[in-house]
Simulated assay, not measured.
Amino acid sequence: MNSLEKDCTSGLPLPACENVTIVTRAEWGAQPSKEINYMGTPVGVVFIHHTAMSECDTQDRCSEEMRTIQRFHQVDRGWDDIGYNFLIGEDGKAYEGRAWDRIGAHTRGWNDVAIAFSIMGDYTKHLPNDAALNAVQAMIECGIRLGKIDADYKLYGHRDVGATECPGQRLYELIRTWEHYGRVGSEPPVKPTPIPFHSGV
């Protein structure tokens, strides 16, 4: 993929990440977004989700799942687009959702200050495979290098700020051991102030 690949369905050019393959919206067959709103970066918060839907381990299967999720979000829920910034398959690839700069529909009350990575599947009783977990870590590191995620970011699971089982019990237990996990005890996370969006394009 080119270092800057313009996708007419996503908005801004999509920078490449060296250590992980990003499957663009055009490549997985996305429908256009109904509306696009941008947020300021670098964000100081990263959320981990699971889709609680089907797992996938090939680009063809993951692309099909992406189209299913987008239909669910746009048609059933009435959202502008697929909710997450990026989704991760057990093929070890990242699938472009709203990308780095767009306000998502993933974590109520936090969408304008955070980037969300959602692993495709249900991780209540088992963990994602290493390929998916490594892709999440690689995307976070890429986001830092691109200036989209602050180097001192705080990492949370969806359930840290909402009444949900997401990202699944086993995955949640794992991310709580990651270096940047930000919740201390029972204290709720404090939402940072959104920063203005400035396009570098």
Rank of each mutant, 00 (worst) to 15 (best):
E165A: 15
H180V: 11
Y123A: 04
P189W: 09
M139C: 08
F117E: 09
T124Y: 14
Q31A: 15
I149P: 05
G40F: 07
Q74P: 07
D91R: 10
N2I: 04
E18S: 14
L14I: 01
A105Y: 14
G109R: 09
S186F: 05
E5V: 01
G97M: 10
I175A: 05
C56K: 01
W110K: 05
G29N: 11
G168F: 01
P189G: 10
K93P: 00
V201M: 05
N19A: 00
I119N: 13
A151F: 02
G109P: 03
K6T: 13
Y38P: 06
V43Q: 02
D60I: 11
L174D: 10
R71Y: 12
H198A: 12
C56E: 00
A131K: 03
K191I: 14
T164I: 11
T164W: 14
Y181E: 00
R183E: 06
P189N: 08
N134H: 10
T51W: 06
L174Q: 07
H106F: 06
K154F: 08
K6I: 09
E65M: 06
I36F: 08
L12E: 14
G44A: 01
G168I: 09
H73Y: 03
S3C: 15
A105N: 15
A135N: 03
I69V: 05
G157T: 10
I115S: 04
D76V: 15
E18F: 06
